[in-house]
Nucleic acid binder design. Structure first.
Lengths: 255, 255
DNA sequence: CGCAACGTTGAAAATCGTCAATCGACGTGG
DNA sequence: CCACGTCGATTGACGATTTTCAACGTTGCG
């Protein structure tokens, strides 16, 4: 196992108790008061089956969620029936946070596996800004980080070949999962089927399948049966021109 | 001039004095106290020549700016020397706001025309959250709206044909310019050359040129000599499947 | 004049999508 | 138990889109 700054080998060690605290631990640490106020924002915890729309594009007055366990994806529909998956969400990520300030949801969120989610009281959240400005900053950081990920996704789809795109995506997902202890440089468990991957990467399922085959044949990565196995991590990073700088925001402005 | 909700015919009438106030006027109106606190955040106003990098990817401790006059674009470089333009900025837009909370800038911002920009004291901005929570909400809204635009851009590049992509982009830009009184359903003045357009839309300049020719030949839109002229607005909206819902956030949660 | 930036075009090649079909795994109802 | 349908993965053949390479025209400017 090499010490590569582009890929954290182990999850950060923190004593954070909630998923959100864990997520922002690299950015700032909350006071006890902020911590307890935060816990009051978590409402019902719900189990949601795989393949359900949690948030529906065009829906008014939506709620936001925190993803506790399982996988989800956010996507936008287009008129011909296709869709573009904007982001894959893994445990610790917010769902629908971006458009809490919008009247109607501008995207949908669908569960990919069975999940456990936690409702966020968005009105409480906004009102808590008055007493907890550092919380406001933390939320702003979260939204900014999400945007950074979408931007990198855009770069991938706009300017990389299909081969690089797929490689880059698999590496990025691995890096994100490593941050929460669900992946390593060897690989990770991944419940995404080829249709979701294709919708994410702006490819057709058929072409994605061929690209995956090629990546497997040249000995870089194997995606099969719900597992991603990095056969040659270094060469894969090289091919994808992967640099996790936009993910690794540790040591930020505030502490 | 038809009354089409997808394209505001005239800019909103407000008495807002600063570009940022004008921008968020549809979302919330600020008190006098908030207004004056906001004005204290505006530092030096600078003139910047066309073609300069205002923010450079990888730079540490960057400043954010408000674009007062002129055009700019934010982009990310890729290793082979190419780039992906993430967004075009027009008067009233922020530059570099997304990564104020990041140690190093994750993207670059380049001026396209001669511009006038205004430095934002980002530390003051974050500190002002303590006394002005509504300002925090407004900033969060701004970042969320920017993200919504990037998401729509991603959908364009990932799932639309080159023809639709170009048409959609020209319409979106028109809608944004209309909001600040710089465009209409007839068209607008546009200083973007074909290289910038190509880098924005994930196409080669050569192919972009052919697409523009086709759009002109079928009588939809003419892009020439720094002007965009909508020859058949309705058919263009139809082709692009354009729906400005993600831009028009008027009537939001707060007032 | 000569150079540089931008726009334009043609021809050939590579990439990617579409259509159609097959295969295996899995669950469900008869 | 088995037939059947569904879902996801896979492959081939073909066609469309997009890129690449190369060249040329125009404009503006030192």
């Amino acid at each position: 196992m090499r010490a590569d700054p582009t890929f954290p080998a182990s999850p950060p060690r923190t004593l954070a108790t909630s998923p959100f605290e864990r997520k922002i631990a690299a950015f700032l640490s909350l006071s006890d008061e902020e911590r307890s106020a935060l816990n009051r924002l978590y409402h019902k915890t719900r189990r949601v089956a795989a393949g359900k729309d949690l948030i529906r594009q065009g829906q008014k007055g939506q709620t936001a969620y925190l993803l506790i366990d399982g996988w989800a994806c956010s996507y936008k529909l287009i008129q011909d029936g296709g869709r573009q998956v904007v982001n894959i969400q893994v445990p610790g990520d917010f769902l629908g946070l971006r458009s809490v300030l919008f009247h109607t949801a501008d995207h949908s969120v669908e569960t990919i596996t069975d999940t456990i989610v936690c409702e966020i009281g968005t009105k409480d959240l906004l009102e808590s800004f008055a007493t907890l400005p550092r919380l406001a900053t933390a939320i702003l950081w979260t939204v900014s980080r999400d945007e950074a990920m979408v931007v990198e996704h855009l770069v991938c789809v706009g300017r990389r070949s299909a081969l690089q795109r797929v490689a880059h995506f698999l590496l990025e997902l691995g890096a994100r999962l490593s941050l929460v202890g669900l992946g390593s440089q060897n690989g990770y468990s991944c419940p995404l089927n080829q249709y979701v991957l294709a919708d994410t990467l702006g490819l057709t399922p058929v072409h994605l399948n061929r690209v995956l085959r090629r990546l497997r044949e040249i000995g870089l990565v194997t995606v099969r049966c719900g597992d991603v196995v990095f056969d040659d991590f270094d060469r894969l990073v090289d091919l994808a021109e992967f640099d996790s700088g936009y993910l690794d925001q540790s040591g930020s402005l505030l502490r």
